Amino acid sequence: MSLTFTLDPAVTPDLRDGILDMWTDVSNRGGAVGFVPPVTREDIRPELVRHFVAMAEGRCRLLVGHDEAGEVAATAFFTFNTHRLMAHWVWLYTVMVHPRHQGKGYGRDLLSAAEGSARTFDGIDAIRLTCRGGLGLERFYGSCGYKEVGRIPDAIRVAPGDDRDDVIMLLPLGRAAV
């Protein structure tokens, strides 16, 4: 089975709750999505609200993947740069697949859908993301076409004495010059 992806879905209570549940489950399984376990939905809710506010203000867009049962199974948020010299690339944040679906290739499907979506955005030439070092994520993103373009040692403090690199990855979209 594959996921059905939607860019800019209507934010409904079901979508909100599905993202909250998934984000909590991903975080509590050790996923590198901005939190360290243990977390609750209420720990994550303020961050999700910030994402929704950015969407309402046009600074952010949501790509969501639903499984065959119609449940939220994957997400990625695009954030646009406001600096005029960096408006030609977009950030990809909060990239996650629900733990019940991991190992099915849905992460690759999500990144492919994100690339396809970004190609429809006016003036966007690349996708940039960061990932937490020490988990092999840079190898996964690399296998999906992203290139490591920078690394900040020990920039992420997961716990006292457990600092991780912040790895910067880039996917050029290869737009032809006009």
Results as ranks from 00 to 15, higher is better:
N81K: 13
A76M: 09
D154A: 12
V11D: 14
P37Y: 08
D8G: 00
H98R: 15
T94S: 15
R128V: 15
M22A: 03
A76W: 04
A114N: 12
P160D: 13
G103D: 04
E68H: 06
E47R: 14
F80R: 14
G58F: 08
G34N: 05
G103R: 10
L111G: 02
L63G: 09
R61N: 14
N28I: 10
G150R: 05
L92P: 09
V53G: 01
W91P: 00
D14A: 15
G150W: 01
V158E: 07
G136M: 11
G133F: 11
I124A: 03
L48W: 08
A176L: 12
A113W: 09
I124V: 15
H98G: 07
V36P: 07
I127G: 00
F78M: 08
D163I: 01
E71C: 08
A176W: 06
R108M: 02
Y141D: 01
R84W: 02
V33S: 06
S117M: 00
E57W: 11
T120L: 01
R29C: 14
I152K: 13
S27H: 07
D109H: 03
A74R: 00
R175Y: 03
I168L: 14
R29N: 14
S143R: 15
V11F: 04
F121Y: 06
P38K: 12
R45S: 09
F121Q: 01
D166Q: 11
F140P: 12
V149H: 03
R29T: 13
D14Q: 15
L173I: 03
R128S: 10
I152L: 11
P13E: 14
F140C: 08
E115D: 04
E57H: 09
A10F: 07
V95A: 04
F78H: 11
I156S: 07
V72G: 08
R164Q: 13
G107P: 12
H88A: 07
G65M: 12
V49H: 06
V72N: 03
F5A: 10
E68N: 13
P153I: 02
V149R: 08
R61S: 15
V36A: 13
M22L: 14
D14S: 13
R59T: 13
T6N: 04
M22I: 04
A56L: 11
H51S: 09
V178H: 12
P46M: 07
M169T: 15
L3W: 08
G150P: 05
V72I: 01
E68F: 02
G30Y: 09
V178W: 05
H101M: 05
H98W: 08
F121N: 01
T82V: 06
G150M: 09
T75L: 00
I152H: 13
F140L: 13
I168G: 00
M22H: 02
L92A: 15
D166M: 13
W89R: 14
R108N: 04
A159Q: 02
A87F: 00
V178N: 00
P99W: 02
